[in-house]
């Protein structure tokens, strides 16, 4: 038995890459439209980033520097696993520094540091269809996109306001791209939505299990849906990061004990580390050496 195969550069065979590359080009030409593609079985499970991995595998080359984040952090287990996969099958240089990366694959966050020209952000998407939870049938949602019939989405958001006094969607908050397609930004917190608008980076979205690829080119209008009397707003945190003191960033709550003790730390670990290296210190972030003195 000879089960050990010689895998191609970046794992995917060239024919699969061509198919995905064609889908990416269509996605770029029709911002926000979900292009069907023939997703392949990947050596990691569906739902764990196979769409993002296929997009990255189809665009990556030896000249690229790859960063992978999950929940904003480079060292979460799935980010580690995907980074190791590409280091192995594409022998690319990897980094945790946002500014150094040419390709950033992400699950659930957009880095705090504004992305620049030439950078590519690849999102892992679980459910690409923003209308899916309002209408489970693909045959129906496809028609709604074709006819630009997005009333149902507004009704849903408005029902939130009627019931809760505010829009109760906190992540995967729907956006409209270039005034045409309503798009799911993937389950990023709505805090990150404004970063998509007129970004200098190319944003590519891959949904493996759902067989869809979509894109937002650089300098493209991405507007979060809202109402005149209930404008879109992002989350605000009461406290700054306990390690680097940053405010105006997305924070994770860390439980310190079972008596309600908690603190907030940066979700974007690279941003936090860079700030601390530059001398910013939060309430609990004192350097242990200095603290000992």
């Amino acid at each position: 038995m000879n089960a050990v195969a010689q895998y191609n550069f970046a794992y995917l065979d060239e024919q699969t890459k061509r198919m995905i590359r064609r889908a990416i080009l269509k996605a770029i030409a029709i911002p926000g439209y979900q292009v069907p593609f023939s997703s392949r079985e990947m050596p990691m499970p569906y739902g764990w980033g196979t769409g993002g991995v296929q997009v990255t595998a189809s665009i990556i080359g030896p000249q690229d520097v790859l960063k992978v984040i999950d929940q904003g952090a480079d060292d979460t287990t799935n980010a580690v696993s995907i980074r190791a996969f590409f280091a192995k099958v594409a022998q690319v240089e990897t980094t945790t520094h946002t500014a150094e990366a040419t390709i950033i694959q992400t699950r659930h966050r957009i880095p705090e540091k504004a992305l620049g020209q030439g950078q590519i952000l690849v999102y892992q998407v679980p459910i690409p269809e923003p209308l899916r939870f309002l209408e489970p049938r693909e045959t129906e949602t496809r028609k709604m996109h074709a006819l630009e019939e997005y009333g149902l989405m507004h009704v849903k958001l408005y029902e939130d306001i009627a019931r809760h006094g505010r829009i109760a969607t906190t992540y995967a908050y729907p956006v409209k791209v270039e005034g045409r397609y309503v798009m799911d930004p993937s389950p990023t917190p709505k805090f990150d939505n404004p970063k998509m608008h007129m970004s200098e980076a190319l944003q590519l979205f891959g949904a493996g299990r759902e067989h869809r690829i979509y894109a937002v080119p650089p300098h493209t209008e991405v507007v979060s849906l809202d109402f005149e009397d209930h404008p879109f707003e992002i989350q605000h945190f009461e406290e700054p990061c306990a390690l680097c003191g940053a405010s105006q960033v997305y924070l994770d709550e860390v439980i310190l004990d079972d008596r309600g003790g908690h603190m907030y730390v940066c979700s974007d670990t690279d941003n936090c580390e860079e700030r601390r290296a530059a001398g910013h210190v939060g309430a609990l972030g004192a350097d242990p050496m200095e603290a000992a003195e």
């Binding site: 770029i28 665009i59 990556i60 080359g61 030896p62 000249q63 894109a215 080119p217």
Partner: peptide, 19 residues
């Protein structure tokens, strides 16, 4: 070198359409 040259050339086309 079809694998590497295709990748490089594809990125050129992708960048051209994205910009």
């Amino acid at each position: 070198e079809p694998v590497m040259q295709s990748q490089t050339a594809f990125r050129a086309i992708m960048d051209a359409l994205a910009n």
